[in-house]
């Protein structure tokens, strides 16, 4: 089994509008639009399930207040690491 990813991300398909900004923004490119349509008839974003760094960029790029929740194993240095990720 691979090392546990530093971060995790969940996407609420009730809230996601499938704009794709999180997919575009994700530094490690671990998000994609799901091929299947949801109840609204759009392709919601989805985490591939691997290698999320928990950087939080997707959270800030997402226009929906509650569509994305980002998790981390270690939340001590969240602010700095978000900034670092954005600088990439």
């Amino acid at each position: 089994m691979a090392n546990q990813a530093r971060g995790n991300v969940t996407i609420n398909t009730d809230e996601c509008k499938g704009c794709g900004l999180c997919v575009e923004s994700c530094p490690p490119k671990v998000l994609h639009l799901r091929p299947e349509l949801n109840q609204y008839g759009i392709h919601p974003a989805q985490y591939t399930g691997e290698s999320c760094t928990g950087c939080g960029i997707c959270f800030y790029c997402c226009p929906e207040p509650g569509a994305i929740t980002v998790y981390r194993l270690d939340t001590k240095n969240v602010a700095r690491e978000v900034a670092n990720a954005a600088a990439v």
């Binding site: 546990q4 009730d14 809230e15 800030y60 207040p65 270690d74 939340t75």
Partner: peptide
Amino acid sequence: SEYQVAQQKSPVFYDRYFRKDELQHQT
């Protein structure tokens, strides 16, 4: 290890939006 929440919906937002009956989760 357990994941902890790093970023989530701000408590300053309502849980549900009562603008329209059918779209209470989206702006």
